[in-house]
Write a protein that binds this DNA or RNA. Sequence first.
DNA 1: CTGAAAGCGCTTACAG
DNA 2: CTGAAAGCGCTTACAG
Lengths: 329, 329
Amino acid sequence: MPGVTSADVARESGVSRTTVSYVLNGKEGVAISPATRQRVREAAVRLGYAPSAAARTLRSGRSDLVLCVLPNWPIGPVIETLVDHLEDELAERGLSVLVHHGRGPRPLAELWRAVTPRAVVALGPFAPDDELAMRQAGIQIVSTATEDGPGRRRVSTVPQGHIGRLQVRHLAAAGHSRLAYAAPTDPRLVDFLEGRLAGVRNECADLGLPEPVVAEVDLEVTSAVHALQEWRDATPAVTAVCAYNDEVALAVLAGLHALGLRAPHDVAVIGVDDIPAARLAVPALTTVTQAIEAQARHLAASVLAALDQEAPLPPPPGDAHDVVVRDSA
Amino acid sequence: MPGVTSADVARESGVSRTTVSYVLNGKEGVAISPATRQRVREAAVRLGYAPSAAARTLRSGRSDLVLCVLPNWPIGPVIETLVDHLEDELAERGLSVLVHHGRGPRPLAELWRAVTPRAVVALGPFAPDDELAMRQAGIQIVSTATEDGPGRRRVSTVPQGHIGRLQVRHLAAAGHSRLAYAAPTDPRLVDFLEGRLAGVRNECADLGLPEPVVAEVDLEVTSAVHALQEWRDATPAVTAVCAYNDEVALAVLAGLHALGLRAPHDVAVIGVDDIPAARLAVPALTTVTQAIEAQARHLAASVLAALDQEAPLPPPPGDAHDVVVRDSA
DNA sequence: CTGAAAGCGCTTACAG
DNA sequence: CTGAAAGCGCTTACAG
């Protein structure tokens, strides 16, 4: 039986729909006898009444949904954790988070129209068309993208460059001067790659180190072996590698092993993310972690600020990164 | 300006809302002059008209949304891929997939009421209350859970036991007879653990091998070292390990290395999932893969079948698993 | 203290 | 070929 309505509850408890609505929504300032309230609530429970969100949304013009649009790159445990925390944070404010894996060429339009979200959290860029249309529909957009569009609230841009700088700083402190960068081959990662690599280059420049040698490394041992040979042949030879992320770093480690070399003795390696496999690598992988919880909290606060209209944006989370020193560098 | 309505389009193009609706929805059987159709469509575009999903849902009682509820366990790349494929498949039928990370203690109720989905895909079990309520609301439930509730369409139950059997079969074929099982410590994985471990036990029994020795291994080297010592001290000593998944297998490999032992010479190891790090391990990890695309296709077909009412359930995907033989076993 | 009524935006019999 | 009207379920001024 799809559909117990407020009218059913009203009939069952002998009051009007108005009263049902007042009681169930805890409307302040309306004096309704405790007995009536009780009766209505019991009837609602007995009947298994659930208000229609569609009707509610139609009436009020807004839902309690936050749409989180994931970008077109591999998600991984970091984003997963971020989304989890975001859900927790927003749930406390009565907002439900729905995630859309924005892969493929499908337009977002159908989706956000279908859910009428209060806000959209974009964990990556999306089409300007979509963005404009959402704005027009009064949907708040909270974006981590780097560009600060017209009216867009730029928020907690994860400073990719900072990650690269941290890698270099750690390596330089350990006495390395000739660095390489192991870039991923997945084209979807290009935005992040550019940010992190720029950080690496800039930090090298600031420290007076030579330009890092860049090579692509996919998640195969042979690929890493090729890159390592190239790096070892450079003059002066590379002694340390910044990897785009832990998986790429794992590949470099595997390549090292295949060549009979050892980290950090022959070549030091540092990754990014601290995935579970990082501490299990041989040698255990030194890596840069991201303070995901802090970022999630900030993201949640930004969403709330966007909804509370002119509330000020929360300050960005402090240094959200840290180096976990293990054995590989 | 939130809200261009069909009335605006009607006014702009000089027709009634009825006609607007007919034209924009491509209603068959109604003869509307091409000129009018054209005019309406242009007006809609010019005004940037977007039909209100809330109104539509209220009217028709159903949306084009499929809610995918993720369970309370760590997601990982396998589920991620599954969801991606599911989205692609269903998008082709005009259905949008929304994912909810069903973690934490929050009830699902608010959520599914808020989106009024056509169907809910449950990648894990959920509370009987929620399930009953959804049924009553006319929402189709497609579940991969093992129990076949009243009226629930059980679907593509991923045969966890089969995974365990494959692991044992591979190890036995390589000449191992005394096996161990490396179980994860995350309590959220207990359902899967039980299924896989039962498969391991049953296959051992069927093959006439002794009971496998079970120990918990978390994602730390020390934990794996302890387990390995226990296994090596058993009589007869363990010569091969089935790991719950690749991450646990990686931990066992790390433990082996810490003890100065080698796989598969001293102890063979086989995982499950074929995560990217598996092929990068030293030695490269032998593992069981799941044919995710086939499972996603089947899941999508099941959803479609559930919506098309009495359409027959698609046949379950064939043997959806395979052993990827690398160096560790 | 409580109810009748309007209206959110849409679709769809039903009349012309 | 096209329009007036009803109704999906809700909330909320406005009257009593």
